[in-house]
């Protein structure tokens, strides 16, 4: 099932607005209002929406576009243009490479690790999960279950153990076993908690001290997240040097438009998106698909 199909059912409201625009053979203030509303309802945010539309307006003026449908196409092209040409691969350099997963509570870090681990194992890598979420009750149990499904091994510490040491041990273990990749889970934390962000920075530092090196720090962002997503991205980047986003729960009615702001303002690329509950429901982010899914439905 394509991302577009998966996203289908949730897109009516947005689609209706764009259908209105498409159906008009003139471009007036109402056209721009509807476009702005569509973007805002997708959580793109006022600032990014305004910037996008200003650019589209400019181009529409320059090209002499006077048809609603053409304006919608210009908007799509503008967004895709901004997302295109970005390196969205996940880097594996040394052995073992370490990918660190960070984010606020409940965004789906553990689940993402399970699925990404499955992908890498399927690609022939040997993968170790580091159970660095020593805070949330039963988080380790959850990760162990995912490891079973994915075919990865788990290194765990005692409950309440220092997450840095758990991650470090996992890397050492992976190096000793000749594993390729360590996927390190961390506890969800609200980015305003100074001490917890410091703890995360420490995990990041300590992970570099052993046999491996951190090649990705992935911020897991829930697609339902509103404008606070930008703040989260900023704070987590400051603490742990985020290299990419994983946008989860895109199979719901939320549109995840905040990633446009995150990519645009912070230059952090979206690398994967979660589009369902199954083991295979994590797919590489494709700008064209994302934008089409954002705009196509309901028309």
């Amino acid at each position: 099932m394509s991302l577009r199909t998966r996203l289908g059912s949730a897109r009516e409201a947005l689609g209706t607005r764009l259908a209105d625009v498409r159906g008009r053979d003139e471009v007036d203030a109402a056209t721009w209002d509807k476009l702005e509303e569509a973007l805002i309802l997708a959580d793109v945010g006022v600032a990014t929406s305004t910037a996008l539309l200003a650019r589209v307006r400019e181009r529409a003026g320059a090209d002499g576009v006077s048809d609603g449908a053409d304006v919608v196409d210009l908007l799509k092209a503008e967004i895709i243009g901004r997302l295109d040409g970005v390196d969205r691969s996940l880097s594996e350099r040394s052995s073992p490479s370490v990918w660190l997963f960070v984010g606020v509570n409940g965004v789906g870090k553990t689940t993402t690790i399970g699925r990404l681990g499955h992908l890498r194992v399927s690609a022939g890598r040997s993968v170790v999960f580091a159970a660095g979420d020593t805070y949330r009750a039963a988080a380790v149990d959850q990760l162990v279950l995912w490891a079973g499904r994915a075919g990865a091994t788990v290194v765990r510490g005692a409950e309440g153990a220092d997450p840095s040491s758990v991650v470090f041990d996992a890397i050492e273990h992976a190096a000793a076993q000749g594993a390729d990749l360590v996927l390190a889970d961390t506890a969800g934390r609200v980015h305003t908690r100074r001490n917890l962000m410091d703890e995360l920075a420490k995990v990041r530092r300590v992970a570099e001290k052993g046999a491996g090196s951190v090649t990705e720090t992935l911020l897991v962002l829930d697609a339902t997240t509103g404008q606070n997503g930008l703040v989260q991205a900023r704070q987590f980047t400051e603490a742990a040097d985020v290299t990419g986003l994983v946008l989860t729960k895109l199979d719901g009615s939320a549109r995840g438009g905040i990633v446009l702001a995150v990519e645009g303002e912070l230059g952090i690329p979206v690398k994967f998106v979660g589009v369902g509950e199954g083991l295979d429901d994590l797919v590489p982010f494709d700008p064209g698909d994302f934008v089409e899914a954002l705009f196509e439905m309901g028309e």
């Binding site: 959580d43 339902t224 997240t225 509103g226 606070n228 939320a254």
Partner: peptide
Amino acid sequence: DAMTGQDAVNVAGAFHQRLELDAVVLTK
């Protein structure tokens, strides 16, 4: 979740339709 964006009303509306909600518990 207190961090939810524009979609919150759609979701809450759908739950309300099924369950007749009495109130919201706001987290995070």
